[in-house]
Amino acid sequence: MADPQDRRLLLVHAHPDDETINNGATMARYVSEGAHVTLITCTLGEEGEVLVPELAHLAADQTDQLGEHRITELADAMAELGVTDHRFLGGPGKYRDTGMIYNDEGNADTPPDTRKDSFWQADLTAAANDLVPIIRELRPQVLVTYDEYGNYGHPDHIKAHRVAMYAAALAAAPSYREDLGAAWDIPKIYWTAIIESSMRASLRELRAAGDTTTFEGMDPEGPMPPMITPDRFIDAIVDGSAYMDRKMNAMKAHATQITVDGPFFALSNNNGSSIFGDEGYRLVKGTAAPGPKGVEDDLFAGVA
């Protein structure tokens, strides 16, 4: 088992705020345990919707300064989680937020027209080469990113998945780009996942409380959308209940993107909702080391 002080976790996310929503409690936990946690964010999130009226002028269709503002929001969120090593892929602003549309099925999709400097249009090998030297520098035992669908179809999430997975393969090849550092083969790779049973439990609580608008159209007893992962595919669950306050504070730091005064967030605050307190993962590389409950409770489980 790796010494807690020598654990190295690398996370690759598309936009500022994705890391906190998906893995905030996980990040806070491992920082508190002494692990080195590194976040790579691929874009500045320039195309995001601005939820703060007095900052509406920052939007992409106005002054287009939202990306610069979100750098500060990300720094504030990471301060809440205790993460001191957070970087932008290739440097701040190298890859532009692609934006997204909703398709006829109601899922996120790629806009019909995307900018040439968008992350979606970036050359895969070139983008991977911005991540390979980081992998070889840090030599992480664990990598966390999205699944092949980007968890919900956003093109930048899909691209982040592709870049992370390709960079991990390239970084492991001794003959690939010796100028980018000595080869490193990441022992364990996980894809983030929203646990189906947790989502259904939260939906039941919301509906029982009379809330029919949060996650509108989702029936706690009905079919789930693609972003929800069946429990049988969940390999690890990090119990982040002890870090919920930090996670919620980090979410509040992303003020232009997240409003935390709705019923769902009240549910999370008051009841320690498992959808935020328990963070799920699918193991896609490495050997699982399940705990007493049949799934891993530590992403570093089994790492020498």
Rank of each mutant, 00 (worst) to 15 (best):
R204M: 11
D85E: 15
G222M: 05
R162H: 13
K293R: 07
Y176W: 05
E178R: 08
D239Q: 12
L39I: 15
D297A: 12
L131T: 06
V142Q: 02
H57V: 11
P16E: 05
S198C: 09
R7N: 06
N23Q: 01
Y190D: 04
A160G: 11
G153M: 04
T63R: 04
G217L: 06
M218R: 14
T26F: 02
G181Q: 12
G91M: 08
E33Y: 03
V83P: 13
T214Y: 13
F233V: 00
S197W: 10
T256Q: 09
Q121H: 05
A182R: 03
T84I: 03
D64P: 01
D156C: 01
P292Y: 00
L203M: 15
A79C: 10
M251P: 07
L283P: 07
G93F: 08
V295W: 00
E296V: 02
E137A: 08
A25W: 01
D113T: 14
A108G: 04
P155D: 00
L9V: 12
G291E: 01
E178Y: 00
P112S: 12
N22M: 10
F265K: 04
V50T: 09
A35I: 02
A172D: 12
E216K: 11
R177Y: 01
E80P: 13
I234F: 04
V52C: 04
Y243G: 03
P112F: 03
T114S: 12
D156P: 13
F276P: 00
D85T: 10
G67R: 06
E54C: 06
G82V: 14
R29H: 08
I134K: 08
S274H: 13
G150R: 05
I135P: 11
A59S: 10
S273T: 08
E80V: 14
D235S: 15
T214M: 06
H57R: 09
F215V: 06
E47Q: 13
M1E: 02
R96Q: 08
L10A: 09
T213I: 05
K94Y: 00
P290M: 07
A25E: 05
A171C: 08
E105G: 11
G106I: 09
A167V: 02
Y95F: 14
F276C: 08
A160S: 15
P292A: 10
A266L: 01
L39R: 00
N249E: 12
D123F: 00
L66C: 02
A208G: 07
G24I: 09
D76T: 10
R115F: 08
K293Y: 11
A250W: 02
L58Q: 11
A14V: 07
V142I: 09
Q62P: 03
I258M: 01
M27A: 15
I189H: 07
E178Q: 14
D298F: 02
H161I: 13
T38V: 14
S202G: 13
G262V: 08
D245C: 01
K247C: 08
Y176T: 10
V144R: 00
A304G: 12
T229K: 04
A77W: 06
D261S: 11
M100T: 08
M244L: 15
I195L: 05
